[in-house]
């Protein structure tokens, strides 16, 4: 059996000063190449799980194991673009390379061109739309050639048209860059569209559902088909049956 890319056993996270666990004994394994959506009500620990994966937070108990071959190749996209305001698009994408002192600087401009920002290399974030800023953030996360991309509700603040375009862009990048991703979302439809599998967390920070999504090739038209909607409806029923957090 091949080593999973990510494996969690009895994962618990409790923040200092809090009376309850944010994550409460989560166990799951994600095989190499699989893309996973993390879904759940607000406050159920989705973002915390992603931050544990990235190493921004440490687990309080349990274990979290990343395949050693992939461990140094994780990248993170925050909820908001979080661009450095005084750096141009290109300089923002170059930032991880400057800070780590590694990588290929020529890849930064190449990635921005690939993401349709070839004519915005020298623009500052304030001169870009929300969708463009998010694409710069995506390029910044990709410049280090990650094998696993972690995305925290990356498209939540965007209008629907931009969101659909970026969803398709992520799918294209997955194919082109041999990338797997784990992403947090509030949108059931987005989880089904972008994920090979959806993990639904409940308000206690426990796994409520672990649903594979076998839909084949993704295009936006897929969202109008009965199998897609059946997945969405099934997940939606389980999602809405969850208690609201106290």
């Amino acid at each position: 059996m091949t080593t999973p890319a990510i494996e969690a056993q009895g994962l618990v996270k409790r923040f200092a000063g809090q009376s309850r666990n944010v994550l409460n004994g989560l166990s799951f394994a994600i095989p190499r190449g699989q893309c996973v959506a993390l879904l759940g009500p607000s406050g159920c620990g989705k973002t915390t799980l992603l931050r544990l994966l990235m190493g921004i937070e440490q687990p309080s108990a349990g274990s979290l194991r990343i395949d050693p071959a992939l461990a140094g190749h994780l990248s993170y996209v925050f909820q908001e673009p979080r661009l450095v305001p005084w750096r141009t698009s290109l300089e923002n994408v170059l930032l991880p390379l400057e800070l780590t002192g590694t990588g290929e600087p020529e890849r930064a401009a190449e990635l921005l061109r690939q993401l349709g920002l070839g004519d915005r290399l020298n623009h500052f974030p304030r001169e870009l739309s929300g969708g463009m800023q998010m694409r710069v953030a995506l390029a910044r996360a990709l410049v280090t050639r990650p094998r696993i991309l972690l995305l925290d509700e990356p498209f939540a603040a965007l209008d629907e048209r931009t969101r659909f375009r970026l969803e398709d862009l992520l799918l294209t990048l997955r194919g082109e860059l041999d990338l797997q991703y784990v992403f947090v979302t509030h949108s059931i439809s987005e989880a089904v569209y972008l994920g090979d599998r959806v993990l639904l967390l409940d308000t206690q920070g426990q796994m409520s559902a672990d649903e594979p999504v076998g839909l084949g090739v993704r295009t936006q038209e897929l969202k109008l088909t009965p199998p897609f909607n059946a997945h969405v409806r099934a997940l939606s029923d389980r999602f809405h049956a969850l208690e609201e957090p106290a």
Partner: peptide
């Protein structure tokens, strides 16, 4: 938020100051 972004890349203290 920017401090957290920088921490992702584990830069030296000096690089964080300069950049």
């Amino acid at each position: 938020l920017l401090r957290e972004l920088f921490r992702l890349y584990r830069p030296s203290r000096w690089k964080t100051i300069i950049k």
